[in-house]
Simulated scan of single mutants.
Amino acid sequence: MTRTVYVNGDYLPETEAKVSIFDRAFLMADGVYEVTSVLGGKLIDFEGHAKRLQRSLDELDMPSPCTMDELLEIHRELVKINEIDEGMVYLQVTRGAPDDRDFVFPDPELVKPTLVLFTQNKPGLADNPVAKKGIKVISIEDVRWGRRDIKTVQLLYPSMGKMMAKKAGADDAWMVEDGFVTEGTSNNAYFIKGNKIVTRALSNDILHGITRAAVLRFAKESQMEVEERNFTIEEAQQADEAFITSASTFVMPVVEIDGVSLGGGVPGPRAARLREIYLEESRKVAV
């Protein structure tokens, strides 16, 4: 079945969707994106993703292509047209397509931003069997640019990191800078020691995860202690449990870090419970 996608005001078959070769996302990685999960045909944490999108646009002095209400309607229409029960909606905004390649930003009065959205159908997203066995991660050097808090389309190094993990027989990688873990290739990283969750504090060094914010809120409501600080791979290896969060994985247990097994190599009870709580509570307020 051919998907219907959205490009600059039009709903089109994916085979007919086109963007200029001069679009600055293609030439300069000058674009931002968001991914919103869909469960039961409804959007999870849409408001959080919309607010982060606006923040990314503001940080890059990039105009917004539409209002957030219009964006919500586009999301809902794509979910409806493509009959998505469980899956994701990918959104990308770029600075647009000027007449030619140039490092200088084009005049926003003359060049309008490009807006593209498409869906991904992922049956069984919530009941992902991987969550029952956990994932293995390796550590790699973090050599990305300094503004990881802006969700840009500069994803080459995260892609390379996932390939490094695959080559090493692992599932993902945690990036390390100056001896401390920043985040995963496409997720935030955590470990649990006793009743305490430890994760890196928000800054320009990591993405301000929407799922991260919700999970930490639910953890505090469940009487777990949360400590936001720098931590090392060695410290995480000595933990009781570890996990990652993202819009597509929700809460995913980590059972091995650089070859060191955690919790006997099986997901721990606290990470598993946080996943249950997140899914349960998020479904209640989905739009």
Results as ranks from 00 to 15, higher is better:
residue 2 T to Q: 15
residue 5 V to F: 07
residue 5 V to A: 12
residue 9 G to P: 04
residue 13 P to I: 03
residue 15 T to E: 15
residue 17 A to N: 06
residue 19 V to I: 06
residue 23 D to R: 05
residue 25 A to R: 07
residue 41 G to H: 06
residue 45 D to C: 01
residue 47 E to R: 07
residue 48 G to D: 03
residue 51 K to N: 13
residue 54 Q to R: 15
residue 80 K to G: 12
residue 84 I to P: 00
residue 86 E to Q: 13
residue 90 Y to L: 04
residue 100 D to R: 09
residue 101 R to S: 09
residue 107 D to M: 01
residue 118 F to T: 03
residue 120 Q to K: 15
residue 121 N to E: 11
residue 121 N to V: 00
residue 123 P to F: 13
residue 126 A to E: 10
residue 127 D to G: 09
residue 129 P to C: 11
residue 133 K to H: 12
residue 140 I to M: 14
residue 142 D to T: 09
residue 144 R to F: 10
residue 144 R to G: 11
residue 146 G to M: 14
residue 147 R to K: 13
residue 147 R to L: 13
residue 152 T to W: 02
residue 154 Q to P: 02
residue 155 L to R: 13
residue 158 P to G: 05
residue 167 K to R: 15
residue 178 D to F: 06
residue 184 G to H: 07
residue 188 N to K: 05
residue 190 Y to C: 08
residue 191 F to I: 06
residue 193 K to P: 01
residue 195 N to K: 14
residue 196 K to N: 09
residue 198 V to D: 01
residue 198 V to T: 09
residue 200 R to V: 08
residue 201 A to P: 03
residue 201 A to K: 10
residue 203 S to A: 09
residue 212 R to Y: 00
residue 215 V to W: 10
residue 216 L to F: 12
residue 218 F to L: 15
residue 232 T to H: 09
residue 235 E to K: 01
residue 251 V to H: 02
residue 258 D to P: 02
residue 260 V to M: 03
residue 268 G to E: 08
residue 270 R to M: 13
residue 271 A to Y: 04
residue 272 A to Q: 15
residue 274 L to S: 08
